[in-house]
């Protein structure tokens, strides 16, 4: 397996944001993670990237335990993410944003001089290829703050890919996008998977999640309540209850 969470919990005081969650993602899989607002999806991503230390539980990548590692060490081993609210270096060019993502985690002291002063730091890299893949090549030298919203989203994903990840965590990539954009995004996510990257997708746009994921899990109040293929999930009564609520037969209607 590619990514494995075992008994992961994160408590903030008395709030169990994530409570004993175990997940296994296979190599080359698009794995969906859904759940109502506040169900612990983003916290799970933050636990995988190392932004939060878990209260208990472990996370491993290709069998290697990541739990004690810092964010940049996990990046170097192949964990990358995008953010729900786009985070770019607005005053750096598109190419520079990608260069930082690609080289930031490399601790190459021996190349200090070439890294700081030698020209053409962008040429010995796959940044050009990534720019073409993301359809941003014509914007290479533009400042990131001058891009359109859609271009920023593409740059955000390209930036995550620049660190050459094995697992890419997408935190609501379709936020603010139309249904049509969502379909395009689905194709792009598949194209990323075809580059050999396994994908964990957090998303509220159900058309997108149901359409492209191989398997998915559902969180509610920090606990995993279901796991399976999209069609399993759609027919699962617990999931329907979490999203739509349950009919409470014992209670009298208020206006009766």
């Amino acid at each position: 397996m590619m990514l494995k969470l075992e008994g992961m919990s994160k408590h903030f005081g008395g709030v169990k944001a994530v409570d004993d969650v175990s997940l296994t993602m296979n190599e080359g899989e698009i794995f969906g993670l859904i759940g109502p607002n506040g169900s612990g999806k983003s916290t799970t991503i933050n636990l995988i990237t190392g932004l939060y230390a878990p209260t208990s539980g472990t996370v491993s990548l290709e069998g290697r335990d990541l739990t004690a590692l810092a964010q940049h060490e996990r990046t170097a081993l192949g964990v990358a993410r995008t953010f729900q609210n786009i985070r770019l270096f607005g005053n750096l060019s598109v190419a520079e944003n990608l260069w930082v993502a690609q080289n930031g985690h490399k601790q190459r002291r021996q190349h200090f001089i070439s890294r700081w002063f030698k020209a053409g730091g962008l040429q010995d890299t796959n940044i050009d290829e990534l720019l073409r893949f993301s359809r941003l090549h014509s914007k290479k030298d533009s400042l990131a703050s001058a891009l359109s919203f859609g271009e920023m989203r593409r740059l955000e994903m390209a930036r995550a890919l620049a660190s050459n990840p094995k697992v890419l965590l997408l935190d609501e990539p379709a936020a603010g996008a139309s249904i049509e954009d969502g379909q395009l995004l689905g194709e792009r996510i598949r194209a990323v998977r075809d580059r050999g990257v396994s994908i964990l997708l957090i998303e509220h746009m159900m058309e997108l999640v149901m359409g492209i994921t191989d398997r998915m899990a559902v969180l509610n109040f920090g606990r995993k309540i279901a796991e399976g293929t999209p069609s399993d999930i759609q027919s699962n009564p617990d999931v329907r209850a979490a999203y739509l609520g349950t009919k409470n037969k014992n209670k009298e209607p208020a206006d009766a």
Binding site: L51, Q71, R87, F89, L92, E96, V100, G104
Partner: peptide, 17 residues
């Protein structure tokens, strides 16, 4: 580029290693 990225958002720079 390294200096500017840290200056603009040092947490984002740190998140990228």
């Amino acid at each position: 580029t390294i200096v500017r990225s840290v200056g603009e958002n040092r947490r984002l720079a740190a998140a990228q290693g």
